[in-house]
Amino acid sequence: MRRHLSALVSLAACAAGTAPAFAADYYQAPPERAVVVTNALVPACENPRVLAQVEDQFEYGAPNTVHAALQVVEFSGLYEKAYQPRAGTKLIERRYCQGTALISSGEHRTLYYVIEYPMGYAGVGWRAEGCVLGLDPWKVYGANCESLRRF
């Protein structure tokens, strides 16, 4: 009996030694799982209609602000920076995106854009707005496109 009891105590001591020990000032809570949104009302960053709106906005604004007939030739490296669902007091759903735009001048410039719902014509549907870094002299979106950067 004594032999079984000492074996059980030894086994318990070994099992306790394998559990991770956390120092009081070092413990970090496990990261939360990423939320996958499947019912978003705003389209994805790579959506061709979104990119067409961003391109149209730029090609309308460039001649009037930087006084140059610049065009977007190509988009690349597009990705989502943040997603803000409609919840509580936030009545507008937003998707913040970033990428690179090849401008007709031959420059590759960073592009920030946001897709918002319901911000379309008369509050129906979604709308996309973009800012090409270095080509917003009136700072419509803040210094260095800050209001569209989001994080």
Rank of each mutant, 00 (worst) to 15 (best):
L102E: 11
L111C: 03
A34H: 14
A29G: 08
L148Q: 01
L5T: 04
R127P: 03
R149F: 03
L111Q: 04
L102Y: 06
A143D: 11
A16S: 12
A15F: 05
R2L: 14
E93N: 01
K90G: 05
R95M: 10
K81S: 01
K81Y: 01
L148P: 00
L70H: 04
T38S: 14
W138D: 08
H4C: 13
A62R: 11
L111Y: 01
Y141R: 08
F58H: 06
G123H: 08
S76G: 05
V124Q: 15
E55Y: 00
P20F: 09
R33D: 11
L51H: 11
E74I: 01
P85H: 09
Y60K: 15
E107K: 05
L133Y: 00
A12Q: 14
L70W: 09
L8I: 04
C97H: 02
Y83Q: 11
I92C: 00
C131A: 00
V36P: 03
G17P: 02
E74Q: 13
V114L: 09
A13H: 04
P48V: 10
Q98P: 02
G17S: 04
F75R: 08
G61H: 10
F22E: 14
D25Y: 13
P30L: 14
T100A: 00
Q57H: 01
M1F: 07
N47G: 03
Q71A: 12
A34R: 15
V54R: 08
P31T: 02
W126M: 04
D56M: 14
Y112K: 00
P118H: 08
G106Y: 03
E32G: 13
F58P: 04
Y79V: 10
A21W: 14
A34C: 11
S147Q: 05
P85A: 09
R86M: 10
A24M: 14
A7R: 06
V73C: 05
F75C: 05
N144Y: 11
S10D: 06
H67A: 07
E129T: 10
E146F: 02
K81M: 08
I103K: 03
E32Y: 12
A82M: 15
L78A: 09
A29F: 12
H108F: 09
C131W: 04
Q53F: 04
L8C: 06
I115D: 02
Q57M: 07
M119P: 02
L51G: 03
L91P: 07
E107V: 01
E80D: 10
R3H: 11
A87K: 15
S76E: 07
N47K: 15
S147L: 04
S10E: 12
F75K: 07
V35I: 10
P43E: 12
V37T: 13
W126S: 01
S147G: 05
D25C: 10
A7H: 05
A69K: 15
S76V: 01
S147E: 05
L51F: 08
A13K: 01
R127H: 03
G88Y: 03
G125V: 05
L78G: 06
Y83L: 08
A69F: 11
A24N: 12
A122K: 09
S6T: 13
Q71N: 14
R94A: 03
C14Y: 11
E107L: 02
Q28S: 10
A128R: 06
T110D: 01
G88Q: 10
G88K: 11
L133F: 05
I115K: 00
Y113K: 02
P43M: 13
P63R: 12
A12K: 14
Y121A: 13
M1N: 08
R94W: 02
M119N: 12
Y112H: 02
T38M: 15
L5A: 04
G17M: 06
